[in-house]
């Protein structure tokens, strides 16, 4: 039972939230220019790491805001909570793949 610190509402029980899966998967700007393989990579392929995982969460029964969590998938320890648009911790990667503005 995770305790999640919503950036807007503070610490709340997991049951108020919905996990939206891996974060920082950017929708391609020109899908038509992609091969089927490239499109499938965006659509279906996931890193699914054992350990630190950056993922999107939605405060469904609260402020209805999406935000990002970096969480250890083995210990369930929450390593970092940051808003959509904030850089992922890995600065280089954030520049290359950072989502949104």
């Amino acid at each position: 039972m995770l305790l999640i610190r919503c950036p807007w509402c503070g610490p709340r029980d997991e049951s108020e939230f919905h996990c939206g899966g891996e974060a920082h998967i950017v929708r391609p700007l020109s899908p038509d220019d992609l091969s089927d393989e490239q499109w499938a990579d965006y659509l279906f392929m996931r890193s699914n790491p054992k350990g630190a995982h950056r993922e999107r969460w939605y405060h469904e029964a609260g402020c209805r805001r999406w935000f990002n969590i970096e969480r250890d998938t083995l210990t369930h320890e929450i390593l970092r909570i940051y808003r959509i648009g904030e850089a992922a911790e890995d600065k280089k990667r954030a520049k290359a793949k950072g989502k949104g503005a």
């Binding site: 929708r27 999107r56 999406w66 949104g100 503005a101």
Partner: peptide
């Protein structure tokens, strides 16, 4: 509703 919020907030915050 969740679907609309998801696209708006995470993909097109602009």
């Amino acid at each position: 509703l969740a679907w609309l919020e998801e696209w708006r907030q995470t993909e097109w915050p602009d």
